[in-house]
Design a protein around this nucleic acid. Structure first.
Lengths: 210, 210
DNA sequence: ATTAAACGTGAGTAATTCTCATATTTGCAA
DNA sequence: TTGCAAATATGAGAATTACTCACGTTTAAT
């Protein structure tokens, strides 16, 4: 009998939870190959048959683990998000005063920008954020989470600030940060750098004098 | 003989420039039907066969005027852009001092936001901005143009400001404005309003004290 | 060793964009 | 008016690609 146990362990939502070691490895191989293919020519051009062939498995096997093409993308997206969340949480963890916040945020943006520049797969995936409803939801949740972390740091710096406003403002700052990254990587490198600096300055002013 | 005269009159790039009256009407009808269908269920779900059927023409005829599905979308996108450009240019035309700039920009954002809320087709199309390379290019060009208009207004207000910096900053402001709109319409209406206000405040601070 | 569940397979289905050979319509020149 | 070439119209079907499913194989627990 083929009883399907649909589980949502990651945002990607695997179809069948891999139980045996063989299949767990297989899932990793699928993700690795998908990554390579996306890096080569973008997630749009990535064909499921290519992924299967490259991973040395059949189409059917591919669909045992991922319900659709989007699920592979989402799983990769989620992994990048988790990495980003850790990075942001660590960067803001011991912010206690205004200068600390200014420095930590500036560094954070730089690191994030460097990641965007260095990871073509991340770039590609988050370029499609607006198109795919599921991806957009993942993205919004991510910004909410990171926004909350930023809001907490800002509250530590300025305890008398309005909590709700800090949350909204920080959420917006995170979303605009992503927008800036996407913009920066789609123009010439030099202009991109300037744009990121402009964003940083604008946001820092908002946070410092807000 | 079927000599094809490819022309790029609009960003949508019609395949064959409609010469006879009949075909010019046809192009308009196609765009109208596409609009209706996008409004009903999104540009992704819009099928070319649906457009053809609704317009009362054959698939082949559809492809006489639009080289591909994207071209229809792009043509509609371009029309919305032109409307926006007019709106922005008029709004900023007689800005001469700081208070004028503050008021004009605030109103501009409100109008833009209202447009986003009111036009489901515009919303749908510009939601997919990041996915389609051609759309992104149109969008970037649009922001560059509008950014230049804003930069000019800011220079009038503050003649000793650095021109290049005004251009970059205004370009970023336009792009972040769009990002804010997209964000605002994908959350609850009430929160969306707050986010737009936050954006406005942040940007105005940048422009006033920048 | 038996067996049931987990896993693997790939030909085939379905959905949809876009082409092309052919037919029809239009407008102009004779 | 008529003849004709260019413009326009048509829709069957080619091409692409995500995804299914019926059936075969492997694994591991009893």
């Amino acid at each position: 009998m083929n009883k399907i146990a649909a589980v949502e362990s990651e945002a990607g939502a695997v179809r069948r939870e891999p139980i045996q070691k063989r299949s767990r490895e297989r899932v990793e191989r699928i993700l690795g190959c998908a990554s390579t293919l996306i890096e080569k020519s973008g997630s749009d051009a990535m064909r499921m048959s290519d992924v299967a062939e490259m991973a040395g498995i059949s189409i059917g096997s591919l669909y045992q683990y991922f319900p659709d093409k989007g699920a592979i993308i989402r799983t990769l997206a989620d992994r990048y998000n988790v990495a980003g969340q850790v990075c942001i949480a660590e960067g803001l963890a011991d912010v206690q005063d205004r200068e600390g916040l200014r420095r930590a945020f500036g560094e954070l943006i730089d690191v994030y920008y460097a990641m965007f520049l260095a990871e073509p797969v991340m770039r590609d995936i988050w370029s499609g954020t607006q198109a795919d409803k599921a991806l957009r939801d993942i993205d919004l949740a991510d910004s909410r989470l990171n926004g909350a972390v930023l809001a907490a740091a800002r509250e530590r710096v300025d305890p008398k600030a309005d909590r709700a406003e800090l949350e909204t403002s920080s959420f917006l700052i995170m979303q605009l940060g992503e927008a800036t990254m996407r913009l920066a990587i789609s123009v010439e490198r030099k202009e991109g750098d300037v744009l990121v600096e402009q964003y940083k300055r604008m946001v820092l002013r908002e946070m410092m004098e807000g």
